[in-house]
Computed example of a mutant assay.
Amino acid sequence: MKERTIDYVLRATWQAVSRMYNEEAGKYGATMSIGFALLSIDKESGIPSTALGPQMGMEPTSLTRTLKSMEEKGLIVRKKNPVDGRGVIIHLTKLGKEKRDLSKATVLRFNDIVKQHVPQEKLEHFMEVADIINDLIADKQIFKDDHESIHSKQQLKKI
């Protein structure tokens, strides 16, 4: 059997998690993106619309569609920013707060089930590895243009 690459394992695992959350959210007429947005909005003070996208790691067009859907479902309201009238603060409605609690319970259940099946030490190692991968990417250490990288590109051309 071929050795699985790190990126393959990450991608396949994330796709499985994403599919699982979307199936669960679908039971309530929602999506994983809506659930994630609900969890990213402060229950009491809301969040500036300009801060939500970066916090969620979502592209503006995807975020716009998600927020429009959430507004249509009565989960959020947009209010002018009292400090900067040009900006908008997104607030949860009563229904939005209820759905946020449901989303939180869903995420906590996932975490609890995984913790029941994976020893704490292994979870800590998993988190450490994920942090290292994120740091390598943030520091542009994967595809920096140096001799080693050029050598790797030449090797790929031979394949």
Score class of each variant (00 low, 15 high):
I6N: 04
I6Y: 06
V9M: 03
V9C: 00
R11I: 07
R11C: 03
A12H: 02
Q15V: 03
A16I: 03
R19E: 09
N22I: 03
E24P: 00
A25D: 01
A30V: 02
F36N: 15
A37M: 08
L38P: 09
L38V: 08
K43I: 15
E44N: 11
I47G: 07
S49L: 06
T50G: 06
L52W: 03
P60R: 05
T61I: 15
L63N: 04
R65N: 07
K68F: 06
M70Q: 06
M70E: 05
E72Y: 05
R78D: 01
K79R: 10
D84H: 00
G87C: 02
G87Q: 06
K99T: 12
D101C: 08
D101L: 14
V107W: 04
I113D: 14
V114R: 04
V114P: 01
K115D: 14
Q116F: 09
Q116N: 15
Q120S: 12
E121L: 08
E121F: 04
L123Q: 10
H125A: 09
F126T: 11
E128G: 09
V129N: 02
D135N: 14
D135L: 14
L136S: 02
I137D: 04
F143H: 12
K144P: 04
D146E: 08
H147D: 15
Q155A: 11
